[in-house]
């Protein structure tokens, strides 16, 4: 299945891209290092063991069942590329791929994903080895403040896969004929709010990657 290949490709890419060093823009002066799980919560608070396969690597955690997948990534695995914008599924900044499908990581519990494959923005590429969508976002200035960007890019990966799989959208005229268009992208990406409104540039970046992929 071509879809599966796509995500295997992503995972393989991510393993090569784990090491990160500071870029030229100096504000990030230290690289995300190797992190370990937080110590188990205090006695009297039952935790649940869960293993998430994040960007190709199994990560075992003991978690308060209340911990969302988003907070497991950000606060327990220190993978802060995935953003918390609203924590209520209203903005899309927390979008990650689980089993290759894009979801809001804020509206799902980490314990519900024991054994699941999770792909984050860190797994898609690194500053030295950008994923094609990451490179296209830079080229087309598909972001400003950068806070929705991880979600936009992860969402775009999942969205392009949905078009390839023939999943229709609200603006698909004939439900039997699913094809790429800018209007399709605008509708399908509407779950990712960008208050800086890089929307036209995001659409251009996605279009370039789509055209490169089908060319």
């Amino acid at each position: 299945m071509s879809d599966a290949t796509w995500f295997l490709g992503v995972a393989a890419f991510s393993r090569r891209g784990v090491i990160v060093s500071a870029g030229a823009a100096a504000a990030a002066t230290s690289a995300p290092g190797i992190v370990s799980a937080e110590p188990p919560a205090k006695a009297g608070e039952a935790t649940v063991a869960v293993t998430l396969v994040v960007d190709g690597q199994p990560r075992r955690l003991d978690l308060d069942p209340r911990v969302t997948l988003l907070d497991a990534l950000r606060e327990h695995l220190h993978l802060t590329g995935t953003k918390k914008g609203c924590d209520h599924g209203q903005c899309g900044a927390c979008t990650v791929l689980v089993g290759g499908r894009r979801i809001n990581s804020c509206l799902t519990l980490a314990v519900m994903h024991d054994g699941d494959q999770v792909t984050t923005i860190e797994g898609l590429g690194s500053p030295e080895r950008l994923h094609p969508l990451q490179a296209a976002f830079v080229k087309h200035d598909g972001f400003q403040c950068g806070y929705c960007t991880s979600g936009q890019i992860c969402s775009a990966v999942g969205m392009l896969d949905e078009i390839r799989r023939g999943v229709p959208s609200h603006v698909t005229e004939d439900l039997a004929q699913v094809a790429y268009s800018d209007d399709e992208v605008r509708e399908r990406m509407s779950g990712n709010i960008c208050r800086c409104a890089a929307y036209p540039n995001i659409v251009a970046a996605i279009r370039e990657v789509h055209e490169g992929a089908v060319a």
Partner: peptide
Amino acid sequence: FDRIDGPLKVTGRARYAYEYHEE
């Protein structure tokens, strides 16, 4: 020019206020 902080932002490596775990 492309933004010089672009590669950090598109890869999730730009760190915002809540994200200074190492420090």
